[in-house]
């Protein structure tokens, strides 16, 4: 395929994905807006006012970056896993398989769709947070790069989950039993410096801790971890998941008999 044909194929998938999550906005964009507003009210205003400062910042200010990142992670993941598994379930994935579209374009299209929803929800949550606190971005480059890379990473995760899934239960297991606990324990609501040394060490093995803290650094300028190391780790995970996804696509794992 020519470069232009590849661009057309890529944008076809991306537009289809954006159209899909916009069409069902009541299931995709509205719920995180409501959930995060409740977090802001309950944890930020009601409980946060009694906590005082965290990491040198007002508690509400402290949790906003974590909550934005949590929304991006869950929505980027959910978009790809539900859309691609839906295609498998309805067999419309065959439309892609019979076409000459290269596998890496298929992957890029779905990941871009996941990033689009992740960023859309991240923007909605950020705008909502402005109703509760004042945000000043400390480092725009770090903020944007972290959120985009994180959305890419979890879109890739969602894609692999969709390839491996054989029933709807399989696409709920990872978000419920892995993503949610890792996110809650990834420093969204607290600084890991509050933890005893042992649990601080255990937390270092949680990849989401690095993403939340890097994003928090971009906005507030404070972090529990080394920013450079965090970027290396995120990029490393992206490389591993990309290679895994392409290998699975090429071999037809979960999509060809």
């Amino acid at each position: 395929m020519s470069a232009y044909a590849i661009w057309v194929a890529f944008s076809t998938i991306l537009v289809k994905e954006i159209r899909r999550f916009m069409r069902i906005w009541g299931q995709t964009l509205l719920p995180p807006a409501i959930t995060m507003s409740l977090y802001f009210v309950i944890f930020g205003n009601l409980i946060g006012s009694r906590i005082g400062e965290m990491g040198g910042h007002d508690y509400m200010e402290f949790i906003v970056p974590g909550l934005v990142m949590m929304s991006v992670i869950t929505n980027a993941y959910a978009n790809v896993v539900s859309s691609f598994f839906g295609m498998k379930f309805q067999r419309s994935v065959e439309e892609l398989l019979v076409s000459p579209i290269p596998y890496w374009v298929v992957l890029a299209g779905y990941v871009a769709g996941g990033v689009a929803r992740g960023l859309a929800v991240g923007l909605i949550v950020t705008l909502l947070s402005l109703g509760f606190t004042h945000l000043q971005i400390h480092h725009v480059g770090v903020t944007v790069l972290t959120i985009v890379l994180t959305a890419i990473l979890f879109s890739l995760g969602g894609f692999i989950n969709a390839l491996l899934a054989t029933k709807f239960d399989d696409i709920a297991i990872v978000p419920t039993f892995i993503l949610t606990p890792l996110t809650y324990l990834g420093g969204v609501f607290y600084s890991i410096t509050l933890l005893p040394p042992f649990w601080q060490t255990v937390s270092q093995f949680n990849p989401i801790l690095y993403m939340v803290n890097t994003f928090r650094y971009g906005i507030l300028g404070v972090s529990d971890i080394d920013i450079g190391g965090a970027f290396v780790m995120i990029l490393g995970f992206i490389a591993i998941l990309t290679a895994t996804s392409l290998y699975m696509l090429k071999n037809g794992k979960g999509i060809r008999s």
């Binding site: 020519s2 232009y4 076809t12 998938i13 439309e95 076409s99």
Partner: peptide, 28 residues
């Protein structure tokens, strides 16, 4: 390819299904 079983997104519009398929072939 026209398969034996229906294999399109049942919720999409007829026109969109056909145009999207063309997009997979790189047709503007």
């Amino acid at each position: 390819v026209v398969p034996q079983e229906f294999n399109f997104n049942q919720f999409e519009k007829v026109f969109d299904i056909v145009v999207t398929q063309a997009g997979y072939y790189g047709i503007p």
